[in-house]
Amino acid sequence: MKKLFPVHHVMGYVFSLVLSVVALSVILWDMSLAVGMTILIICAAIQMGVQLFMFMHIGETGTKTSLYTNIAYALFVGLVTVFGTLFTMIWGYQ
């Protein structure tokens, strides 16, 4: 029975709920922009780790090349989307 129970997934689920609540607190309580952003960024980073390790089992793959290609691709697209959006919508806006 112990083997059948998906401990990792349940833990991951609880973690992501907790992290979401913490992130929500940023708008519920008054705090300065810097503090709020710090909390959000830290939460986001941990959240990413939870997703990758607890749900996607990123440590368990056999072939490292496909893993690294995938991560490189994801980073490329993610960074381009975030910084490209900042670039077009804020920094480069007249």
Partner: peptide, 22 residues
């Protein structure tokens, strides 16, 4: 294909830098 999207709205008020890059 992931780095060209702003060419769909060149005319919406970006600076020359954004339009040039895209």
């Amino acid at each position: 294909s992931f780095v060209v999207w702003a060419h769909h709205f060149y005319t919406m008020g970006h600076g020359a830098m954004v339009n040039g890059v895209f």
